[in-house]
Design a protein around this nucleic acid. Structure first.
Length: 792
RNA sequence: GCCGGGGUGGCGAAACUGGUCAUACGCGCCUGACUUAAAAUCAGGUGUCCCCGCUGGGGGCGUAAGGGUUCGAGUCCCUUCCCCGGCACCA
């Protein structure tokens, strides 16, 4: 028997698979109907130079499912790509020199080598990269479709502005309110930006959760993020301005208790209020200061602030004049940017009223019934909501309304390394889309990636100034780039048709493969990528580009693999990179270990303690299977054969139904241990074959080699084993005998025995008799094929 | 504060719909075999307390804490404590 040499075996089989194109998946012939196709997808990596253990967990898990489903006879699409635009490469270029493209492409080469080293079954013909013009051409094309529909648009919105670097910062670049690079305090600034109108899909995004087989917590996170609130919009008349001020409330039942109104400092009516206000100077100063503060700073304020405008609005329920205030605890982004304040029943309003000495009226008593509410007195609060809105509605002073917390998706980035936005600004024509025929708008070369008050792309004058596509007059290109989440909102569609240069994808191909049958990725994308992609698919569906409404049918979140910071890794020194670990123990050991160490959906602190044990297991497997290879075929029945069938059933159920990945490994270990104890028992060969076959999705290299030593070929395409029900059937079982719920004895019993016979046997047990000690048996519970419980 | 997830041996964790002395599988540790020795490998042991006629056998207690439901609870219900994650002036 040769020694187990993981490196040699792994190189050998990886070459065989590549030569045979074992895991390349051709597209169907046109007209093919979806039947046995299965789309397995893991979130694509950002190509940093190195794989980390989180990647290894993510992609090994996907790999196990891929092999499992393939061997169950499904046609499995399992592609890979790179989310290759984005800040890290750009920051590296700024810091160390070089071009973000060179850095990115070097990293892609490196990360792909590491992926191949781990032996993942990937269709490398379908690789895509966000920064490849052949890809981002279609990102731009899709943008144009959204633009035509009015779903991509420009509007003014507050952004993070670093006064020192003269640039807009992404939220991720603001650390504790300061610029991550220079440390200057970041300001809020209003700028015109590009947005996707995701808010128009808020209800669809909520409703279609019903179509998904997703974890509850993810759906809950999305639901909270979208934040649908039902209530009413009520009109508070401001006579001095001759306008009706609309306010949104979820508590129209408390309108009789609305004793003042508050406007956000950004509210469009504020300017007009200032004009009329006796407090104009104070008000103007307050508005100026609040608007320079970012939202988080405002939210963190310990005490509420605000200024009385000196003007009044009419409460539509009481017809009483109430004071109008401007205060920054009211947010312009939510509802109408103005509220009716009900200090008696809203904590925040109450706090405010207390500070400024404003009147407080209680309108709901302890029985949740209305008081001080005129004709509505005595009505239960939940009934009053509708009644009051109806009543105000009849007078034209209110209507039912729904408010969302979800905001439109701002995707302008004043950065270099991203997808250019295909727009030209023309003095005559305004915002003009670049014609489809002129795509892609290639990312221009620039001298300096640092944004200096204008986006880096704008520093290339030659690129920036182009004739207007519509009138031919002087035009200026959009110099912002797109958020990288745009790139990743449709990549899963491109995989099915990655080389198409006439369209982003063929509709029949996406309709054939999608929705994704199993998606695997981190839960950190719950309110980002997973929401954006759903939005994209809904829009593309409406555009007739595809025939489904949801991209990801089933979703699984792998846990976080934490590294560093923990006691363990500090005391143990540096953490080894996955490919180094593969060189030390073999790829199979790394793959097994990351899945064996705990449940895949649970966070873990990375430790290398224990990978030795996997190494031992693989060497033992190698030895024991080699020995069993000499055993004769056949051997029906017997404990070893039964154990093998039980293991087949367990592993199949765990991966297929329960979607758990650590316990199948333990089950195969048990089988191998049993086989090791009985190397020449009947069925040894069968047990060895089962063990090898079952471990193949986890450790495909050693499995393939051992399969060959067992005299077979091409395990990767062998049908997944099926447990023989007949072999699982038992004639006898171990009867557990309990007295008052405590196990007292266990005896062998036949499955044929009746309840009475089992009870009789229980009573006969000497150990039971000792417990009974002459006491009267009041009841006997029998669980068929399991136990008898005697109650005394 | 709100929402979600979780607390099981020295450690990572099993126990899937309440039903086989809870702790499978692995790590670590202990003992033994092989060896001049060590490593590797192999075999055995490893919750806790107690009892006995003590190379064996028996019993009590144990799944964050307390209570409940049940013939039977790690699993279901209630209360409390702790940890992790998300959201957080959203009217």
């Amino acid at each position: 028997m040769e020694k187990y040499d993981p490196k040699a075996i792994e190189t050998k089989w990886q070459r065989v698979w590549e030569d045979e194109r074992a895991f390349y998946v051709p597209n169907p012939e046109p007209g093919a109907e979806p039947d046995d196709e299965f789309y397995m997808l893991e979130m694509l990596p950002y190509p940093s130079g190195n794989l980390h253990m989180g990647h290894v967990l993510n992609y090994t898990l996907g790999d196990v499912v891929t092999h499992f489903k393939r061997r169950q006879g499904l046609n499995v699409l399992r592609p890979m790509g790179y989310d290759s635009f984005g800040l890290p490469a750009e920051n590296a270029a700024i810091k160390e020199g070089g071009h973000p493209r060179e850095i990115t492409e070097r990293n892609i080469v490196s990360i792909e080598r590491q992926m191949r080293r781990l032996g993942w079954a990937i269709d490398w013909d379908r690789v895509i990269a966000a920064h490849d013009p052949a890809y981002y051409r279609w990102t731009q094309w899709l943008f144009l479709k959204f633009f035509e529909k009015g779903l991509a648009f420009r509007k003014e919105a507050p952004v993070n502005w670093c006064p020192n670097d003269q640039t807009v910062l992404a939220n991720e670049q603001v650390i504790d309110g300061r610029c991550e690079r220079c440390g200057a305090e970041v300001e809020a600034r209003k700028m015109e930006q590009w947005f996707f109108r995701i808010t128009a899909y808020a209800d669809a995004l909520l409703d279609d959760h019903a179509l998904l087989d997703w974890p509850d917590r993810t759906i809950t996170i999305q639901r909270n993020w979208i934040g649908r609130s039902e209530g009413a919009e009520l009109l508070f008349r401001i006579e001095e301005l001759d306008v009706d001020l609309p306010v949104f409330t979820t508590r129209p039942d408390t309108v009789f208790g609305a004793t003042f109104c508050v406007l956000a400092p950004e509210h469009p009516l504020v300017d007009r209020l200032v004009e009329r206000s006796p407090n104009a100077d104070e008000l103007r100063e307050y508005v100026r200061r609040s608007m320079a503060k970012r939202g988080e700073i405002r939210a963190a304020a310990e005490e509420k602030t605000g200024v009385f405008t000196g003007l009044y609005a009419i409460n539509p329920a009481t017809d009483e004049p109430i004071r109008i205030w401007v205060a920054d605890y009211v947010l312009m982004e939510y509802g109408t940017g103005a509220i009716m304040a009900v200090p008696g029943h809203d904590e925040r309003d109450g706090e405010y009223a207390k500070k400024f000495g404003l009147p407080v009226v209680t309108v709901i008593d302890e029985d949740r019934v209305l008081v001080n509410s005129g004709r509505f007195d005595g009505l239960p609060a939940d009934e009053a909501k509708k009644a009051i809105v109806d009543w105000l509605g009849e007078q034209g002073r209110g209507r039912p309304a729904v408010s969302f917390r979800l905001r439109d998706w701002g995707f302008s980035r004043q950065r270099y390394w991203g997808c250019p936005i295909p727009i030209v600004y023309c003095e005559q024509c305004g915002i003009v889309p670049v014609p489809e025929a002129d795509l892609p708008v290639l990312l221009p070369e620039v001298e300096d990636y640092r944004p200096k008050g204008k986006p880096p792309l704008a520093s290339n004058d030659e690129w920036l100034h182009v004739p207007c596509p519509r009138c031919g007059g002087p035009g200026v290109r959009e110099a912002d780039t797109m958020d990288t989440f745009v790139d990743s909102s449709w990549y899963f569609l491109r995989y099915v048709d990655p080389h198409n240069d006439g369209a982003p994808f063929e509709r029949w191909l996406v309709d054939f493969w999608l929705p994704v049958d199993q998606y695997v990725g981190g839960i950190d994308h719950a309110t980002g990528h997973l929401l954006y992609s759903r939005f994209f698919v809904k829009v593309l569906n409406e555009l007739g580009l595809l025939g489904f409404r949801e991209p990801f049918q089933r979703l699984f979140h792998q846990g976080w693999v934490r590294q560093g910071g923990s006691k363990m890794s500090k005391s143990r020194g540096n953490v080894t990179a996955p490919d180094q670990l593969a060189d030390m123990y073999g790829a199979d050991a790394v793959r097994l270990y990351i899945l064996f160490v705990g449940p895949a959906d649970q966070d873990m602190d990375w430790t290398e303690e224990g990978i030795e044990g996997i190494g031992r297991f693989l060497r033992r497997l190698w030895r024991i299977v080699n020995e069993a290879a000499g055993a004769t075929e056949g051997g029906d029945g017997g404990p070893l054969v039964r154990k093998a069938h039980e293991t087949i059933a367990k592993v199949t159920d765990d991966i297929g139904r329960r979607f758990v990945f650590n316990t199948p490994i333990a089950a195969v270990m048990e089988l191998v241990n049993e086989l090791g104890r009985n190397p020449s028992a009947p069925g040894a060969r069968f047990a060895a074959e089962a063990a090898v076959s079952l471990i193949q999705p986890y450790a495909p290299h050693i499995a393939e080699e051992l399969w060959a030593q067992l005299g077979h070929e091409r395990l990767w395409e062998q049908p997944w084993p099926v447990a023989d029900e007949a072999q699982l059937e038992r004639e006898t079982f171990e009867l557990v005998i309990q007295v008052n719920g405590k196990v007292r004895d266990r005896v062998e019993a036949s499955v044929e025995e009746s309840e009475e016979e089992l009870i009789a046997r229980a009573k006969q047990s000497p150990r039971v008799q000792a417990q009974l000690d002459g006491k009267e048996i009041r009841q006997a519970i029998v669980v068929p094929r399991k136990l008898v419980n005697l109650v005394v």
